[in-house]
Each structure stands twice: as C-alpha cells, then as structure tokens.
Nucleic acid binder design. Structure first.
Lengths: 341, 341
DNA sequence: TATTAGCACTCGATGATGGAGAGTGCTAAA
DNA sequence: TTTAGCACTCTCCATCATCGAGTGCTAATA
C-alpha cells in the first residue's frame, strides 16, 4: 500500500526526528539521506504522508513530525527485520547483568536501574503477579503474642512473608497441622486460584465447624488476599533530562500515574499473557495518563510460561530500535537467570 | 537581640511569603497585619532586617524574600511555642492512621503517602536500620537445591527474609543446630553488632575448623551484610504542583538524589540519634543535592529508644508550622502503634 | 509524466521598545 | 520617631518589526 520510496522517506523522517527532537523539513532529509531527489520532491512525498496520517505539521511551514501511526509504521518495520534488533548492546548488557546473582527481588531492582541507565527512559520491572505465582509450600511460625509469620515459598523461587493475627492459644503443633493442611490442598496452584478457592470454601467449610480448618481458612484469606507484587521503577531523573519534557504538566501526570503502583501493575499485567516484546505508542496506550508516552515491554518466563513483565516508559519520540533491543535482551536474560535456579 | 516589633515584622513577612509565594512588599504587610504603622516605617524595619541577613531582595524594588536564616529564625520561634504546633490536624490524622493496622512495612508505606497527602510535599518513611534493629531469632528453612531461606525475626516486630546459597548436603537437622547456635549467640544484639562480630569471628573460628560453625558464620556473613533498610517515598507529583518548581532543573537534581535510596537512608540515619522533630532549612541541609530544599524529620521509637525516622522534603518556602505538626504527630503515632504489639 | 527550480507566503522565534505597576529609598515635615 | 510625598528602579507584558526555516504552487525541464 505504501510505495517503497515513500516508505523510505517516512522512515528517514522518523529517524531524523528521533535523533534531533525538532520538526524535520524536506531539506534536512535530502541532506542526511541521499535519495537523489530534490527537496521539492521530498516535500511532495511528505505532503502525501501527511494526508495518509503518518506525519503532521505542528503549524503551517514548520517541518513535519511523526504521528502515533507514523511511529507505529516505523516500529512495525523494525520488528519485521528482527536481525536489526538485538545485535548491539549485547556485550555491554550481559556483562552488566552477569555480575548480578542475587535473590530475584534485588535482581529485578537492579534490572530496572539498568534499563533506565541504558535507555535514559524510565525502567520498570515487576515480580511475578499472583496470577503467575504457584505456591510450593508455606510455613507457619509463631512470632509473638497473637502474631503469626507466614512464609510462602513459590515454585518460581520467590519467598514472601506476611504477618497475620491469630488466636494466641493456637499451639505450634496445631499450626504445623494447619500448614500441612494448606500445603496438601493448595500446593501447585497459583496464588490467585488459591484466593478464589478460599473464598468459595469459606462459606461451605464454616458449616463443618472444624476449628482448625476454620482457622486455616482464616489465615489463608489474609495471606492470599489480592496483593500487587513488587514493582521497581527507576530513571525518573534520567527522563527529565530529555528535551521532550520542558513543560512540567506532562511529567506531573506521568508521575502521578507511576506513583500509584497499582496502575503500573495493571499495565504490565496486561501484557503478561503475550509472547515477546510489545510496543504501545502514545494513544495506543491502555492507561489514560500515559497516552503521551510510549511503552516497550516484554515478559520473562519460567520455562516457557510467561510469569512477569519488565519494560520502559519513554516519550513517543523514542529510540525504538535501541529500546526494543534492550528490553528484549533484558527479559530473556532474566528468563535465563531464573532457569539456573 | 531583635526588637520585639522588628521580630513581629519579620514573622509577618515570612508568613506572607509562605502564603503567597511572591516577594512581599511593605504595603502588603501593613494591609494584612495591623501594626498601626505606615508602609514607610515597615520599609525601614524591613531594610534593617535585610542588613541583618534575615531578608533579601531578588532585585532592587521588588519586595523582600526570607533567607535561610530568616526561615531559621521563624522556625525557632515556632518551636518555642510548642502549643501552637500539634493542635490542628490531630483529628484528621489519627482518623486516617487508625484504619491502618498492618505489618510495619505496609504501615510505613501508607504513612509516607499520608505525609505527602497532608503536606503536599514529599513524604519519606524508613524501616529501622541495621543499627537499631535487634535480632530476636532466626529460622533456617531449606528451600530447594542449594538455596536456604533465612527468616529473621526482630524485637521490633519486623520479619525479613533472605535467600543464601549453601552446601546442598546440609540436612535440615544440621540447619536447626546452626540456627540455635546463631540464636543463642546473637539474639538481643543489633544487626550491625552482629555483622561486626561475625567479621571478627570469621578469622578466628575458621581455625577451629568446626564444620557447622564455619557454615553458620558463612550464612551469617551473607544475612547480616550491610543492608540499607526499606525506604518509602511518595508525593513527587504533589510537589510538582507547587508554584515553587517552575524550572525543571531543581526537580531533576532532587529526583536524582531521591532515586538513590542510599542517600535518603544516610539522610535519615543522621537524625536517628536525635530526639524530637528536626528541621533543616536549605543550606543547613546535610545533603548537597538538597540545599535548595527543606527537610522536617522526626524519629519514631520503640519504648524510649529511637529506632527509625520519617520526614518530609519540601521547598524552603514551606508551611513549617503545619509540616512540623504533621511530622511530629505521625512519628509519635508510629511509636504508639509499635508499642501495641 | 515525473521531477525540479523558483518564488511568494506563512508562521514561530527573537529581540527591541515602551508603558504600567509595584516597590523601594530618601527627604522633609509632623 | 514616624510619616507623607516623590523620584527612581526594575520587572512584567504587550506590541511590533525582523529573520529564517519551511511550505505550497506554478512553470519549466528531462
């Protein structure tokens, strides 16, 4: 549908814009790329591209700026040439990541810092959500008074703890019974599934009036309540150095959204099902507050099952090629790390 | 040293400025406060105050603006009238906080959000640092393969876990022995003390060549390594709505400092020893990147011993009266909550 | 027919100009 | 000692002209 030459011009304009942050004019294109065409011809082509909705003019007689669909076209052609993506940065990235062999939380924390460091955008990483985390087993340890420490081991190697209040009369022996009851019943299920089951069983089992089972369910209800999973965000200050954020209002909007980690979680949960790297450009973005930004995100996997997500948030004028490579590599690196353990 | 009338004028100017964010002129002062003096007289007094370094003029024939010493004077006189502080907000604050009865981490998370919500500045809370956290006991649970989960219970009611790699041959029985060895030896000490001891004993005990003790020390070295404590920061977007931050550069500086949680930790560690609420105004600030801002911070206690710190970061043009009240109340509320458990 | 050179036109950015207004400092009178 | 009066200073804002980058259109060209 798009003439090859026209296509090349579009890509050139977008690349110029990504590089220079200002509207790009016909002359600049002829200078930086040798199409063997005069500015006038380029102008005509650019005018066509504007009609097609890939470019727009901030005002008459400024250069052109890509629209969201323009970026989309650009990104799609990048994704078609997968070999372009991936090959740079490989060395630097793995060198950095190799040094990090810690528990998954600090690892993801570091990973988000690295994402932002390499891209200069905001780096986000997330631990596996309740939908992807399968319970291996729990241990119950009495803390003091009415406080019970619940230690949760998951198949993904996460360890979480939670404190719940219980009847202080419960002995450690009974707690052990409760633990093995819970383990036998729920081990192997995702935390989400467990939560749903518990809710269901609460009503039924309470009729049985078995004290311990009732107690067990009460504990479960607390422990497996909806919990968002940890999110690591870095690079806010990096972002601010970009010329794209001269006015404060946009940043404020974004910060407001990011500070509410639940928003970030839903954002990344959205993509957790999908394979591979996904790109949301400006208005394509599922979250209203981020319709001025672009997101590049990917999932990391346990074996072949996607369990968590990472990504970056940047301006729509983003270096997509680099961003996609870096996110992609980081995600597969995390996958690899997880498989070692 | 300062004439009472002069003092009153200074306080009036500062209050005006805090309210209106613009340089305040002599006429405005006579209008808002009834000193029974004409603008001309006020002008003379303000000129004196400028000579004394409490006020300054952004340029000839603008109004006056408080200097850091001016704010300092203001804050000191606030702190002398303690009854002024504290009495407002009490109702709202406790109502909000009463609803929060969770583990200390989520509690502190919420507390930081509330600090920023109430003050419109950046709210910061911190879990007790390694110097203030005393070990109650640890439990060692084999996870899988060479991974050991170390669950740490502290006297303050914190529960932390950490994963360390161990010799996969170690049986749970031996792990239990190691745990009780560690508990008997280190329980009641702060994590910092333990870390230091372990380092010392590493060299000596290794000569003894008791396999289990060596193993125990190895685990301890990992578990009690310097770890910063968790920091909760909120209200970045709140801050951006203030008129004080029209230029982006200051914010970027601040964000950069805040993103490095270690900086925040050292900041709050500084004040952890001191009693009561502390105020750092602009250049008084220990951290370079924050010399444009003011900090109001207080410690919360376990019994009478300060164990952690909370605070807010705002512009030097801060509503100190309100800020001090809120920080003060929140800190003592946290202290109270801790004593319940 | 497609491309190009030439040209008039548009519009933002930049900088100079000139009140208006707020606030000061100084002087002289109360 | 305080105050009224006044000249002065400096920022802010709107206006205006200029400059330049870039366009769209038309006519010439390959």
């Amino acid at each position: 549908m798009l003439d090859e030459r026209t296509r090349q011009v579009l890509l050139a304009v977008i690349q110029c814009y990504i590089g220079a942050a200002g509207p790009v004019g016909s002359r600049l294109v002829t200078k930086k790329y040798s199409f063997g065409l005069s500015p006038a011809t380029i102008r005509n082509i650019m005018s066509d591209l504007e009609d097609m909705g890939y470019l727009r003019q901030p005002h008459t007689s400024a250069g052109r700026v890509p629209t969201d669909s323009g970026y989309r076209f650009y990104v799609d052609s990048l994704l078609n040439d997968r070999q372009q993506v991936r090959k740079d940065h490989l060395a630097e990235l793995t060198r950095k990541l190799e040094t990090l062999r810690q528990d998954i939380n600090s690892f993801l924390d570091e990973a988000s810092k690295m994402l932002s460091f390499l891209t200069h955008y905001i780096g986000i990483t997330m631990t596996p959500g309740a939908g992807c985390t399968t319970l291996n087993r729990i241990e119950l340890i009495k803390h003091r008074g009415d406080q019970l420490a619940v230690i949760m081991f998951t198949d993904e190697g996460l360890i979480k703890n939670k404190v719940v209040s219980i009847d202080p009369e419960l002995s450690q022996k009974n707690l052990n019974r409760i633990a093995s009851y819970i383990n036998s019943r729920y081990s192997g299920l995702t935390l989400d599934e467990i939560r749903k089951r518990v809710v269901g069983e609460m009503t039924r089992e309470s009729l049985l009036c078995d004290g311990l089972i009732a107690e067990a369910l009460k504990i479960c209800r607390n422990v497996f309540s909806v919990s968002p999973g940890d999110v690591y965000i870095s690079g806010l200050s990096e972002m601010l150095s970009l010329p794209d954020f001269s006015d404060i209002e946009r940043i404020r909007e974004l910060l407001k959204a990011i500070e509410d980690k639940r928003i970030v979680v839903t954002l990344l949960d959205n993509i957790s099902d999908a394979e591979g790297t996904q790109v949301f450009i400006g208005s394509e973005n599922p979250i209203d507050e981020m319709k001025q930004f672009s997101i590049v995100a990917a999932t990391y996997k346990e074996g072949t099952r996607p369990i968590g997500a990472i990504g970056i948030i940047g301006p729509t004028r983003m270096n997509y090629l680099e961003a996609i490579s870096i996110v992609d590599l980081t995600a597969s690196y995390i996958t690899r790390i997880l498989s070692y353990r």
